[in-house]
């Protein structure tokens, strides 16, 4: 794992054509994922974060339109542009080999009629990997005997470990975890987050997609907050959560049960008819006329009224005014 590995996403947009409407699921997302670091993409259900992940792996349905670029740079290999890449390239060079996917609910992701070993071995064969099933199992906390069980005989935690082993069978440098904690209880969440952290510490890159701020806080180095298809704030996790600068992030942080436990008023907008300008405007206490204009991502925040950090907040404003 050299530091020449990198995933750089630039201006990624995804929309879906549905009868009589267009769903804007991702709007101009840009970010980077580096080896040894974990980037958590947080947002509520339906904000488009899962779509973003699927776009990177070329797993979108046929009615999707994708624009923008996602460069996968790997040491000793030609960089691959994921958005324009053919299914063949994605299958041969990306999925499982460069990017491993840890699925949303491992228990339902496994085929019920085959043993864990059969499914793990299939992944190994498919990827032409030199790994042995037993070694992989032990590496991710399973006894080799556990592999001979059928999915319904596995506990939630064991199913998760099997899914991890399958995702990592091809030794990918980037791991994509899509809501790996949904429906798990605290010890299992802890263990899942621990595993992700270990993967980072081994030098892999992790892209974690979750609605759970607390889980993100525990493992992520960097955070990207997504609201209504747009990234609204990015930065080091501690900074974003400790001193949120976007009103939406601030609202999410304050809504946690160990903080104010106060909901953000209103509902997120429909992705079929996003309002002009800042999508958070109808729910935002700071909104002014300026917010009718879409705020650009600037210094990690996309807001005209950046909070808490006055210098940063004013800097673009002053710049603009002086420019005018």
């Amino acid at each position: 794992m050299t530091d020449r590995n990198l995933l750089r996403v630039e201006g990624l947009s995804v929309s879906f054509a549905i009868p009589a409407a267009r769903v804007r699921a991702v709007s101009e997302a840009s970010f980077e994922v580096r080896p040894g670091r974990c980037l958590a993409l947080v947002g509520e259900s339906g904000c488009g974060k899962s779509v973003l992940a699927h776009a990177l792996l070329g797993l979108l349905p046929g009615n999707a339109t994708v624009s923008g670029e996602a460069w996968l740079k790997q040491s000793g290999a030609e960089p691959v542009e994921l958005i324009g890449a053919s299914q063949q390239v994605l299958a041969r060079r990306v999925r499982g080999r460069a990017i491993g996917l840890i699925p949303q609910s491992p228990a339902t992701h496994l085929t019920p009629v085959r043993t864990a070993r059969a499914q793990l071995q299939e992944a190994i064969n498919e990827l032409g990997s030199s790994a042995r099933a037993d070694d992989l199992a032990e590496r991710y906390g399973l006894r080799p005997a556990d592999l001979d069980r059928y999915p319904h005989e596995l506990s939630g935690g064991m199913a998760q470990r099997v899914a991890n082993a399958i995702a990592l069978a091809g030794d990918p440098w980037l791991v994509l975890a899509d809501e790996p904690t949904s429906g798990l209880d605290q010890p299992l969440v802890d263990r899942a987050m621990g595993t992700l952290r270990e993967l980072c510490d081994e030098g892999r890159a992790v892209l974690l997609i979750t609605h759970d701020l607390r889980a993100a806080e525990r493992v992520a180095d960097d955070l990207a907050v997504m609201y209504a298809s747009r990234l609204v704030e990015t930065g080091p996790a501690a900074g974003v959560l400790g001193q949120p600068r976007h009103p939406y992030t601030a609202g999410l942080v304050a809504a946690q049960p160990d903080r104010d436990f106060v909901p953000i008023p209103g509902l997120p907008p429909e992705l079929t008819r996003l309002p002009e300008g800042c999508a958070f405007r109808p729910r935002c206490g700071h909104a002014t006329e300026r917010c009718a204009e879409s705020p650009p991502m600037d210094g990690g925040v996309a807001c005209h009224h950046t909070l808490a950090s006055p210098d940063l907040a004013r800097a673009p404003e002053i710049a603009k005014e002086s420019h005018a």
Binding site: E44, G251, A255, P257, V262, P263
Partner: peptide, 30 residues
């Protein structure tokens, strides 16, 4: 399965109902 803001809203809703009607609530959570 929900984000922090929706969680806070629903808990508030249940609490308001409890205060209004005196209903008993069992909150099961990990």
């Amino acid at each position: 399965m929900l984000d922090a803001s929706t969680q806070a809203h629903l808990v508030r809703l249940v609490n308001a109902y409890r205060e209004r009607t005196g209903a008993g609530v069992l909150a099961i959570s990990h």
